[in-house]
């Protein structure tokens, strides 16, 4: 089983220095664990002008790193698509979005489209399926829920930050790992259609307080429920209170009736 992990040139969110993207290191862990269980080799792929701190990925469990050398600002998709098609990988893992570049998370989808592979988003855990050539993917959903999918391989899977933490960095593993440079396919980067400015956090909608209202009204809007008009029970017996609470929770569909 051949597994590829796509690595992007990230930047540290605080210092702004070049750094590996955490979710891609998590993808390496998932790939290494799947490879260890079922006998597969894991290759990291990066397309760009230089590897830089991505060599750290070798210390996080990756055995082999392939650098597709591109000059300057160039679109990484054609280089990666060519290398992935040539390598005939069974499983391709990528982070859900980069950190430090465009960060739109679109590249895995365009690659999957080019290669004609199915794509599964937001994996938190991977397991091989019972039937040969299938992969079980646990997809992370909102509120800690999961969706278990069974996919036919080959497939491209993006990894969610809810996946297990990356393997700790080991210096010996980083020395042992090998990196190989290959010429990439040069493709001019698409001309920018966006205007860039320094980031300014936008205010989020919290609660609807009418403009020009008093401080008391704004505090109320921020703290009170929209529903209101609740039921009030003063000094009921504990048993009666318990019955009321349970009935209310059942009406909200939280405690299943037995």
């Amino acid at each position: 089983m051949k597994i590829a992990v796509l690595l992007s040139a990230g930047r540290h969110p605080v210092s702004g220095r070049p750094a590996p993207v955490p979710v891609e290191l998590q993808a390496i862990r998932l790939a290494v664990e799947i490879g260890r269980q079922f006998g597969g080799d894991v290759t990291g792929l990066h397309a760009g002008p230089e590897l830089g701190p991505l060599t750290d990925a070798l210390g996080h469990g990756l055995a082999r790193l392939v650098h597709l050398h591109n000059e300057g600002e160039s679109d990484p998709a054609p280089s990666l698509a060519a290398a992935l098609a040539e390598g005939a990988y069974d499983l391709i893992l990528a982070g859900r979005a980069g950190q430090g570049g465009e960060d739109s998370g679109l590249l895995p989808y365009t690659l999957a489209r080019t290669l004609g592979l199915p794509i599964i988003a937001d994996a938190a855990a991977l397991a091989l399926g019972e039937a040969p050539g299938t992969l079980g993917v646990e997809q992370a959903l909102a509120r800690g829920a999961r969706r278990r999918l069974l996919v036919r391989l080959p497939a491209l899977v993006t990894v969610h930050p809810a996946a297990p933490a990356p393997l700790p960095f080991a210096f010996a593993a980083a020395r042992r790992g090998s990196s190989e440079a290959r010429p990439g396919r040069h493709a001019p980067a698409p001309s920018p259609t966006v205007e860039e400015r320094p980031y300014r956090p936008r205010p989020k909608l919290i609660a609807k307080a009418a403009a020009g209202s008093t401080a008391l009204e704004r505090l109320r809007a921020a703290t009170e429920a929209a529903s209101g008009g609740g039921r009030l029970l003063v000094d009921p017996a504990p048993e009666e209170a318990a019955r009321e609470i349970l009935a209310h929770l059942r009406a909200l569909g939280l405690v299943t009736a037995r």
């Binding site: 990230g10 930047r11 540290h12 969110p13 702004g16 950190q99 430090g100 570049g101 465009e102 960060d103 739109s104 259609t193 966006v194 205007e195 860039e196 400015r197 320094p198 980031y199 300014r200």
Partner: peptide, 12 residues
């Protein structure tokens, strides 16, 4: 939108 590790705002 935020880009480049939330350091840049892209606008169009």
């Amino acid at each position: 939108r935020a880009a480049r590790g939330r350091r840049v705002e892209q606008r169009r």
